[in-house]
Simulated scan of single mutants.
Amino acid sequence: MRLVGPAAALSLALALGGLAVPAVAATYDFVPAPQTDLNRIYRIDRITGEVSSCQYGLQEGTIGVTLCFSSGEGAGPQAPGEFGLVASRHEREGGVFRVNYRTGDMSICYVFDEKVVCTPQTSPSPAVTTAAPSPAATPSVRPGTGASPQRP
């Protein structure tokens, strides 16, 4: 049976529909805490910057449990951006840096009272450049006033 008209168009659209779906980038990134004796991993939503964390925990009578910490103060969604997590190389550090690749803002996130908390997003102040002093502002150097003692 041959389809004609709108039915044919619908059939063709359904058949090609799987090919027309755009690839979607990963929504989350994951980074382990740098602390070498801590089995904690942090998760960040790449668009909202929301941070959470999970780690392995022992529980009697089981093979263990996954303990997860939801976002608390400062770790919730931020203004949309392009966020990531960066672990320092400090082997005793349990937290990670949340970075916004678009703005350069950073904060530190860590687990506190069974929640992930983050410091406020901030960025270093812009570098202050100093202009060379004008000739009028430059002190004049006279003979005999250098660092070496002068003989009479």
Score class of each variant (00 low, 15 high):
152 P>G: 11
55 Q>I: 04
7 A>M: 14
146 G>Q: 04
25 A>N: 03
117 V>M: 07
121 Q>P: 14
13 A>M: 12
14 L>A: 14
90 H>D: 15
126 P>C: 00
48 T>P: 11
117 V>C: 01
97 F>P: 01
81 G>D: 07
150 Q>I: 13
65 V>M: 06
83 F>G: 01
105 D>Y: 03
45 D>V: 03
71 S>Y: 15
89 R>P: 07
53 S>K: 02
82 E>A: 11
8 A>C: 07
41 I>D: 00
2 R>G: 01
62 T>A: 05
138 T>Q: 15
136 A>F: 10
130 T>D: 10
150 Q>H: 08
58 L>E: 11
110 Y>L: 09
31 V>L: 08
49 G>T: 07
13 A>P: 00
124 P>W: 00
149 P>Q: 08
89 R>V: 03
123 S>F: 08
134 S>Y: 11
33 A>G: 02
35 Q>H: 14
48 T>R: 11
131 A>T: 15
129 T>S: 14
1 M>S: 12
119 T>K: 02
25 A>S: 11
103 T>Q: 01
121 Q>D: 14
141 V>A: 12
31 V>Y: 04
6 P>I: 06
5 G>A: 15
72 G>M: 10
68 C>H: 04
9 A>W: 05
33 A>Y: 00
83 F>S: 00
41 I>K: 00
140 S>K: 13
99 V>W: 05
13 A>N: 04
101 Y>A: 12
79 A>H: 01
16 L>G: 09
97 F>R: 10
26 A>L: 08
92 R>Y: 14
95 G>Y: 02
37 D>V: 07
146 G>E: 06
92 R>W: 12
96 V>S: 06
30 F>A: 08
40 R>P: 02
